[in-house]
Design a protein around this nucleic acid. Sequence first.
DNA 1: ACCGCAGCCCAAACCGCTTTGGATGCCTGA
DNA 2: TCAGGCATCCAAAGCGGTTTGGGCTGCGGT
Lengths: 349, 349
Amino acid sequence: MTLKELAKALGLSPTTVSRALNGFPEVSDATRRKVQAAAEAYGYRPNMRARSLATGRAMAIGHVIPLASGHEMVNPVFADFIAGAGEVYSRSGYDMLISIVPENEQARAYEEFKSKGSVDGIIVHAPREGDRRISLLKSVGIPFVVHGRASGSDENYSWVDMNNLRAFQRATAFLLDLGHRRIALVNGLEDMDFAVRRRAGFEAAHDAMGLPHFDELKFSGEMTERFGHERARALLGSEDPPTAILTSSMIPAIGIRRAIGEAGLEMGRDVSVIIHDDDLSYLPNGGDDPIFTATRSSVREAGRRAASMLLDIISSGSDRPRSDLLEAELILGQSTGPAPVRPQITEHT
Amino acid sequence: MTLKELAKALGLSPTTVSRALNGFPEVSDATRRKVQAAAEAYGYRPNMRARSLATGRAMAIGHVIPLASGHEMVNPVFADFIAGAGEVYSRSGYDMLISIVPENEQARAYEEFKSKGSVDGIIVHAPREGDRRISLLKSVGIPFVVHGRASGSDENYSWVDMNNLRAFQRATAFLLDLGHRRIALVNGLEDMDFAVRRRAGFEAAHDAMGLPHFDELKFSGEMTERFGHERARALLGSEDPPTAILTSSMIPAIGIRRAIGEAGLEMGRDVSVIIHDDDLSYLPNGGDDPIFTATRSSVREAGRRAASMLLDIISSGSDRPRSDLLEAELILGQSTGPAPVRPQITEHT
DNA sequence: ACCGCAGCCCAAACCGCTTTGGATGCCTGA
DNA sequence: TCAGGCATCCAAAGCGGTTTGGGCTGCGGT
């Protein structure tokens, strides 16, 4: 059923039918009601392709999620972020276009989105330090919102981010207050912006208390279960093991917990662990009493925020950059406790 | 840059330019080369909306992923499945449209996809037993491929599935061969088709050996870490605990492992565990020596298969249903061992 | 010399919708 | 009574491509 057919069936012109359905004032109430009833009855729905061609608006948002070259991994946090964004889109009648493109083809992907006219805006995922995509997108001239920030780039652009620095600073300070002095950082890949900020927070907390931090306790890698396990195993088996571990996500934390168990230690007593918890739906951090002490910030909420910001930008037409900084809450779990009294501690304090 | 502009710049008609770029034979080689060079130089890319309107093909595939009503969860296996499908789409110039819609709005979503003309085909996720979506999609008349099957529906349709029954039958038989007689099943939600088949496999293996299976050891729920933990904790604390646990995914298995540790038991010695491993990129089941004994089948590969099957169906235009049944491999890990000798065992054999 | 046929190219219609620029009829006010 | 205004509706021109149905050359065959 096309608009033309509907119009013929009603004995009206396509113009009037279109206006009636789209709420224009130049049509009488009686006619409008008749048209709406007929549209409902015939199950008429406008063809989006034709509509977008005519209006120039695609009614779709593109998500370009990068495929780290080499290791072809899609981070599970995307699932939750996208779920959040999807909620917003569907409420506003937008579609969500996803393309998973290798790191080195990102530029082409954006230009294609623009020139093919398939989206009205773009969400940029996983920005790196000084990410070139941002200036690229600005030059392409398509509205976009970055999930995260790119420290190096001094251009101003719209973003939604979690306060990574502050979260990790608080978590670290909390551990230091508990008496921990050798704290390991099992971080995400440090060419990712969020990981850089987290590390900075980790170091800032030490600096604020005039305490040293140790390079040999800082690690960076893809945030898999295996990575957490390997690092923790190596750390706990080392000569001067840390008394606490701070890690970037639930997933490596699971590996860390496994390694702690294998070493015959108890988490929270022998080794304290703090994680950042993205509040993933399938990996909840316990319920009433959380397993891990954590800095928590829902990535799903971030998805919602980013999506509505983008839709706002598109509908307002303004290009004034906006930003939204989410604060993580520090929640207490069973994985932290006072630093165990061990000879090493005196050596290092 | 539109086709018309390009044509003007070249001193040719839009017709010729279009044909040159789309490889039609009615254009001389010299002209074609000239056109291609110019298109390249100007960075011309056809507007997809206009092209789809003219050709009637959207060059996009829709993925409708259901949001279980109540608990708003997006299963992390989608991330990997979609990554696999995305690979195939991008190789063929297709876009991927994702909409996350609540269970009760699925019907509307499909009809919209069809009438709005935004996709050429649909991938159906997470079919339930006797899923009504299948007959609905057939009546809507849009090509689709189901990831999984819907036992109840006797219509024939195209699907890609893992042999859930066989996988769980083998895993169960393996445990029975090791002497386990009280085996718990921590299954996914049993209104999901895959979970039904897995349970059937579990029971079939018992039946084949003439052994009883126990209803009080069978559980069904959303496959979260928490679910695995709760169930395992209850089971291990019960009067007559199982000596082995078979579970549906890596994620509850993590909770199960946690519960085993908390109970002061050792996995593989006191309690054996077998999981189904979807080979998620961020949750690898160990490397050279797997943590869990598992039935493994890559969900990413399933995504690739489903996508290419759908593209095939679309391009061939045939509506002969196809199917692809993937077999899981049984891989040996550290989580299984012979049934511990306990008084209970003699009571039950 | 003339016809027929490739080979190459173009004008115009069309896809299904929106939107501009009237047209029509009726009502109001001078 | 008639111009002006308002409320409704419509024809037609796009949007940016594809595709149909020719038109014009130049060549080989008779």
